[in-house]
Simulated scan of single mutants.
Amino acid sequence: MKVSVVSYDPGWTCRFEAERAVITAALHPLAPAIGHIGSTSVPGLAAKPIVDILVGVGAEGNLDETVGPMTTAGFTYVSAFERAWPARRFFVRLQEGAFPEIGAGSSLVIGRDVHSLTHIHLIVHGTPDWIRDLAFRDRLRSDAALRTAYTALKLELSAQEWPDMNAYNTGKDAFVKAAEAEALRRLERKR
């Protein structure tokens, strides 16, 4: 499958705001912290047209409490990835509507069989994962040379065939890990 990478669209911020309102209403009792992350959150950066949202809850015990309200709100729960990352609950808003869950035994491939508009990464607020995701976003927002290099890499990778979105993401992994590490070093120096 080919991965679509397109020029920055200011409408992605509006999509984030609309989704934030839905998530806030669904998870109101858990008082979630919600942030726009990923390439669609960085003005001027080319991206897959999928809005990534980071949602933080107060404790790991709250993670499973999110599944019912989020699926009721129209998101599809992707439990298939929990084995690899047990401290995250992953949800998507699909273009075609919602399945209640895409589980470990599912043959559906996101990006090939079903296409998503939004990815929600639900974790515990304030954890190292939380801090890293926001630091990387903020570094991309403030560093034009990094944005240019990241765009070039994504455009190069998007020209290739991939078995799934995870394989495409693996192609970006070394670049992202290096940029995240530098973002965290800069954040630490500011403290």
Rank of each mutant, 00 (worst) to 15 (best):
M1F: 01
M1C: 10
V5W: 01
V5C: 05
S7D: 14
P10H: 01
G11C: 06
T13E: 15
C14T: 13
R15G: 04
F16C: 04
E17W: 02
A25T: 08
H28C: 12
H36Y: 03
I37E: 10
I37V: 15
T40A: 04
S41N: 05
A47R: 01
V51C: 14
L54Y: 02
E60I: 07
L63C: 05
E65I: 06
T71I: 08
S79W: 06
A80H: 02
F81I: 06
R83S: 13
R83F: 05
R88T: 12
R89V: 04
V92M: 10
V92P: 08
V92W: 05
V92I: 12
E96F: 00
E101S: 13
E101R: 11
G105N: 13
S106A: 15
G111I: 05
L117P: 04
H121W: 06
L122M: 07
I123P: 04
V124C: 08
G126N: 13
P128E: 05
D129A: 14
I131C: 13
L146V: 11
L146N: 09
A149I: 02
A149R: 12
L153S: 10
K154Y: 03
L155E: 15
L157P: 01
L157R: 03
E161V: 13
P163T: 08
P163N: 09
M165T: 13
D173M: 10
K177W: 06
A178H: 00
E180Q: 12
A183W: 05
L187M: 11
